[in-house]
Structures are given as C-alpha cells and as structure tokens.
Computed example of a mutant assay.
Amino acid sequence: MSPTTTAQADPRTTLRAGLPDRYLTPDDIAELFEVPLETVYQWRKKRVGPPGFRIGKHLRYDPADVQHYVRERKDAPEAA
C-alpha cells in the first residue's frame, strides 16, 4: 500500500515542516496565518506583516522571508 497525499495540507503543518518551493500568494499567507485576506493586505499597507514583492500586478511572498518573519515574531518580547 502506498501512502496517500491530500490535495490540501494543513497550512500550519506546512509552515512547521517547511514552506512550498514556490513564491506564496496573499491567499497562501491568509491561510497560513488563519487570518482574513483583507488582513494580509492591511499588513502590507501598514508594513507590519511578512515582506512581499510585486511581479507585475501580482503580489508574492518569498517563503524564506515568511519563515524569517515568523522567527522574529516568536523571538520578540511581548508588549506588556
């Protein structure tokens, strides 16, 4: 018997196991962090979320930058 794979893996498991080997979309970011898509766009507008970049009219995120953003957030002291 061969192991089966699901079409859509749990995004939190993907983040822990390693992000896909492709640039991520805003939808991917929203799914990974379990936030509404509008939140991702607000982060970008306020420059507080993971850094993204434009390819033509499309917004993309480098998985390495997203992992770095998560590590920084985990290591940052919490505000009182």
Rank of each mutant, 00 (worst) to 15 (best):
M1R: 08
P3M: 10
T4F: 03
T4L: 11
T5R: 05
T6W: 03
Q8L: 10
D10Y: 04
R12S: 09
R12T: 12
T14V: 15
L15P: 07
R16P: 00
R16Q: 10
G18K: 07
G18L: 04
L19S: 12
L19Q: 10
P20F: 02
P20Q: 04
D21K: 13
Y23D: 15
L24F: 13
L24P: 10
L24H: 11
L24W: 07
T25N: 11
P26G: 11
D27L: 09
D27I: 06
E31A: 15
E34S: 14
E34P: 00
V35T: 09
V35A: 06
V35G: 06
L37G: 05
E38G: 09
V40G: 08
Q42Y: 02
Q42T: 02
W43N: 04
K45I: 00
K45Y: 06
K45R: 12
K45G: 01
K46Q: 10
K46C: 03
R47S: 10
G49C: 03
G49M: 02
G52N: 01
H58C: 05
R60D: 07
A64H: 12
V66W: 03
Q67F: 00
Q67N: 11
Q67E: 15
Q67P: 00
Q67G: 05
Q67I: 03
E72C: 09
E72R: 13
R73W: 04
D75Y: 03
D75P: 01
E78L: 15
